[in-house]
Simulated assay, not measured.
Amino acid sequence: MLNTVILVSSGMVGLAMLLCLWRLLKGPDITDRILALDTLYINSIALIILLGLYHGSAMYFEGALLIAMLGFVSTSAVAKYLLRGDIIE
C-alpha cells in the first residue's frame, strides 16, 4: 500500500516539475524564471526523498540535503546579482 502511495506521489511531483520547467522556459519575467528554478530544485528534493523512501536507503537523503544546500546558495547568489549587479562586493 505504501509503495502505491509513493509512486502516485512521485507522479504528482514529476508533473509539478514539468509545470515548473514550463514556467522556467516560458516565464514572462526574469523573476518568474528564478522562482520557477527555485521551485524546481525543491521539487527535485521531494522526488529524491520519495525515491529514498521507496528503496529504503538513507543515501538518498544525503543527496537531497546536498541539493538543498546548493539550491539555497545559488538562489541567493542570483537574487543578489539581480539586486546589485555583482555577487562579490
Rank of each mutant, 00 (worst) to 15 (best):
A68K: 10
K80H: 07
F72I: 10
M59R: 09
L53G: 04
L70W: 07
S76A: 15
A58M: 08
L66T: 15
S57Q: 12
M59P: 00
A77L: 14
G63M: 14
H55R: 12
A58V: 08
T75M: 12
M59D: 12
Y60E: 05
L70C: 13
S74E: 05
S76C: 14
L66W: 05
S74F: 08
T75W: 11
M69C: 13
F72G: 08
M59C: 00
A79E: 09
A77G: 04
M69S: 13
I67M: 14
A64N: 05
A79P: 01
A58Y: 04
E62Y: 14
I67Y: 07
K80L: 13
I67N: 06
G52L: 02
E62T: 09
H55I: 11
L66I: 15
L53M: 13
F72T: 07
G71E: 05
A64P: 05
F61M: 08
M69P: 00
L51H: 02
Y60P: 02
G56V: 01
F61Y: 14
G52C: 02
S76V: 15
S74I: 09
A79F: 09
L66C: 12
L53N: 04
H55G: 00
M59S: 13
S74G: 09
G71F: 04
L53E: 02
L51R: 01
V78W: 05
L66K: 10
L51F: 11
Y60M: 07
Y54N: 03
V78E: 01
L53A: 08
Y54W: 11
S76R: 10
I67V: 14
G63W: 07
T75D: 01
G71I: 05
V73A: 15
A64G: 13
T75K: 08
A77D: 02
L51E: 02
L51N: 00
L70S: 14
E62S: 13
L66R: 08
Y60F: 15
A58F: 05
S57A: 08
H55F: 12
G71A: 09
L70I: 13
G56H: 03
A68N: 05
Y60G: 04
E62N: 10
Y60N: 10
G71T: 06
A64K: 04
G52A: 11
F61D: 01
G63E: 04
M69Q: 01
F72Y: 14
M59L: 13
M69Y: 07
G71M: 05
L53Y: 09
